Amino acid sequence: DVPLPAGWEMAKTSSGQRYFLNHIDQTTTWQDPR
């Protein structure tokens, strides 16, 4: 597995969808940043 870039975290919604948190610029995205 390729690790997420620095500052990123993967999370899941209550319905189980994956999303990605960027802690550096305080954004979220559905797109995997890798």
Rank of each mutant, 00 (worst) to 15 (best):
I24K: 14
F20W: 00
T27C: 10
M10A: 12
N22K: 05
T28M: 01
Q31M: 10
T28P: 02
S14M: 10
G16P: 00
S14F: 10
H23Q: 01
H23V: 01
D1A: 15
K12N: 09
W8Q: 06
A6F: 11
D25A: 15
Q31G: 11
L4K: 02
D32P: 08
R18P: 14
D1K: 15
D32K: 10
Q26T: 01
S15Y: 14
K12H: 12
Q17W: 14
N22H: 05
Y19C: 02
P33E: 00
T13C: 02
D1N: 13
Q31Y: 12
L4F: 09
D25E: 13
A11V: 04
W30T: 01
T28L: 01
A11G: 08
D32A: 10
S15C: 07
T13H: 04
W30S: 01
I24F: 09
D32N: 08
Q17S: 11
T29A: 07
L4S: 01
G7N: 08
R18F: 11
L21M: 09
V2F: 12
S14D: 08
A11T: 08
T29P: 03
H23F: 00
T27F: 13
A6L: 14
R18V: 13
Q26P: 03
G7W: 06
M10I: 09
Y19G: 04
P33M: 04
H23L: 01
D1S: 14
P33W: 03
G7A: 06
P3A: 13
R18A: 11
D25S: 14
V2S: 15
A6H: 11
T13D: 01
G7L: 06
I24Y: 11
F20Y: 12
S15R: 13
L21R: 09
G16I: 02
D32V: 09
A11R: 15
N22S: 08
P5L: 06
I24D: 02
K12Y: 09
Y19R: 00
V2D: 15
I24R: 12
T27N: 09
T27V: 10
I24V: 10
T13V: 08
R34F: 01
D1Q: 15
Q17T: 06
Q17K: 04
R18C: 09
Q31W: 12
T27I: 09
Q26M: 06
Y19Q: 05
Q26K: 15
K12R: 11
W8P: 04
S14C: 06
I24C: 10
T28R: 03
N22D: 07
L4T: 04
G7P: 08
I24T: 11
L21S: 04
S15D: 09
T29W: 08
D1P: 15
T27G: 00
D32E: 06
V2L: 15
A6Y: 12
Q31K: 09
P5A: 07
L21T: 06
Q31A: 12
L4V: 08
L4H: 06
N22C: 05
D25K: 15
T13K: 00
Q31V: 07
R18I: 15
F20G: 05
W8G: 03
T29M: 05
A11F: 00
Y19F: 05
G16W: 03
M10E: 15
D32Q: 09
H23N: 03
N22V: 04
F20P: 00
Y19E: 00
W30V: 00
Q17A: 13
M10K: 12
R34H: 04
H23P: 02
T29S: 09
R34I: 03
P33L: 02
T13A: 09
Y19S: 02
R18D: 10
L21A: 06
M10Q: 14
T27R: 13
E9I: 04
K12D: 08
G16T: 01
N22G: 01
R18H: 12
T13Y: 13
V2R: 15
N22Y: 04
K12I: 09
M10N: 02
A11H: 02
H23G: 00
S15V: 12
K12Q: 10
S15P: 05
L4W: 06
A6I: 10
D32H: 09
D1C: 14
V2G: 15
N22T: 03
T13F: 01
T13I: 07
D1H: 12
Q26R: 15
T27P: 02
G16V: 02
N22F: 01
R18W: 14
T28N: 05
P5S: 06
I24A: 09
D32C: 04
V2A: 14
I24P: 10
R34N: 05
W8V: 02
F20V: 03
G16D: 07
P5R: 06
D1T: 15
S15W: 12
P33R: 06
A6N: 11
P33Q: 03
F20T: 04
Q31N: 14
D25R: 15
T29N: 10
L21H: 04
D32G: 06
Q31H: 14
P5G: 10
D1I: 14
R34Y: 03
P3I: 13
E9V: 05
T13N: 07
A6T: 13
D32L: 07
D25H: 14
M10L: 10
S14W: 14
M10T: 11
S15A: 12
W30F: 04
N22Q: 05
R34C: 04
A11C: 00
G7C: 07
G7H: 08
D25I: 13
A6C: 08
H23C: 06
K12S: 11
S15I: 11
M10W: 09
H23D: 02
W8M: 00
K12P: 02
Y19H: 03
I24G: 11
P3K: 14
L4P: 06
P5V: 06
R34P: 02
G16R: 08
A6E: 07
S15T: 11
P33V: 02
L21P: 04
P33K: 02
M10P: 13
T28D: 01
I24H: 13
H23E: 02
N22M: 00
Q26V: 01
